[in-house]
């Protein structure tokens, strides 16, 4: 009950405190509309992060075009020390190979990776398919349909890579998000979907394989893709913080330290636990190398599947 009163008091006070501290003002760009999965994590990340930096920060949602509009806004703010982006995997590691964008993987100062969840290949629990082998066999007569949360998203790429690298026969049907795709899976309009643990747990789904280099805790009987005789495929849904190019090394170091402290804070950990986000911190150099690697790998998948333009 206190919290409500505090929030209301805050409503009145924010204006004044904000104006007073306006000089040290950090904008955190989230390239999705408010309330989305990435936005929620960003908004839980923001208070501790700005406290660590000693600044006032505002989350700004710049949505559109598969998150590339907001990401481009960060890239275009070259040298601006008061703007960072809380970015999803797709905007950094897939979209630049799909279409002409005003940025590429080299357009950012990488700060940190915050969370990362491995993806599972899954089917509806109401289907009688219990293994990947069975799935491949049954797909021979009539190809299956796999859903995704849109063209060029991670669920699309993961399945496209699986189809290219195995005997599985399946075709792609994109939806406008994970929710509608789940609706279609529940109604047996599609049969296969690749997504994270959150989706797996919330809907009646059966995991057949995991797109990671080792088995995942809690799902010990779910084999990795490599164990099934396919080349190793690594697909995970991750998020990270990037800043524009051209900021001072000192500022970049401040960001990196603040990010590390935030990710390790109890507050963020409690939240991540509730939202089933898997904390997976990577520092600036590791993160940069990671994005580069993912970018190349995804580009290869897109080329193999004939999806590049």
């Amino acid at each position: 009950m206190k919290s409500l009163r505090y929030s209301l008091a805050a409503l009145a006070l924010i204006g004044t405190t904000h104006a007073a501290m306006a000089a040290d003002n950090l904008e955190i760009i989230v390239p999705f509309a408010a309330g989305g999965a990435t936005d929620i994590v960003a908004r839980s990340f923001e208070p501790t992060f700005s406290q660590q930096l000693g600044v006032t920060s505002v989350v700004r949602n710049v949505a559109g075009a598969s998150a590339t509009v907001g990401t481009a806004e960060v890239a275009n703010s070259e040298g601006n020390p008061n703007i960072i982006g809380y970015e999803p995997a797709g905007a950094l590691s897939i979209q630049p190979s799909l279409k002409k964008l005003p940025y590429g993987p080299d357009s950012f100062t990488y700060i940190c990776r915050t969370v990362s969840n491995p993806m599972f290949l899954m089917v509806s629990k109401s289907s009688d398919i219990t293994s990947f082998k069975q799935l491949v066999e049954e797909s021979q007569d009539q190809p299956f349909l796999y859903g995704s949360s849109g063209p060029g998203t991670l669920p699309h790429l993961a399945m496209a890579a699986t189809v290219v690298n195995s005997d599985l026969k399946a075709e792609h049907v994109p939806y406008s998000g994970s929710g509608p795709a789940m609706n279609a899976l529940a109604g047996n309009e599609i049969q296969i979907m690749a997504d994270t643990e959150t989706i797996l747990e919330n809907y009646d789904l059966r995991p057949l394989a995991v797109f990671a280099d080792h088995r995942v805790e809690g799902y010990d009987d779910v084999p990795t893709i490599e164990e099934l005789g396919l080349p190793a495929l690594d697909f995970s849904v991750w998020q990270g913080v990037v800043a524009p190019k051209g900021i001072s090394d000192e500022r970049a170091k401040q960001y990196a330290e603040a990010c590390k402290a935030t990710v390790e804070s109890d507050k963020f950990k409690t939240f991540a636990d509730k939202a089933k986000a898997n904390i997976a911190y990577l520092g600036p150099d590791d993160f940069k190398a990671f994005v580069q690697k993912r970018f190349e790998a995804n580009k290869q998948v897109l080329e193999d599947a004939g999806l590049t333009q």
Binding site: L11, I14, G15, H18, A19, A22, A23, D24, N25, E27, V58, R60, S77, N80, P81, N82, I83
Partner: peptide, 20 residues
């Protein structure tokens, strides 16, 4: 503008990089 930009924190396009 002040109400939305500074009090309600609905960020509108800004001229300066720090958003004031």
């Amino acid at each position: 503008w002040f109400l939305f930009h500074h009090v309600l924190m609905i960020r509108l396009p800004a001229l300066l990089t720090n958003g004031v």
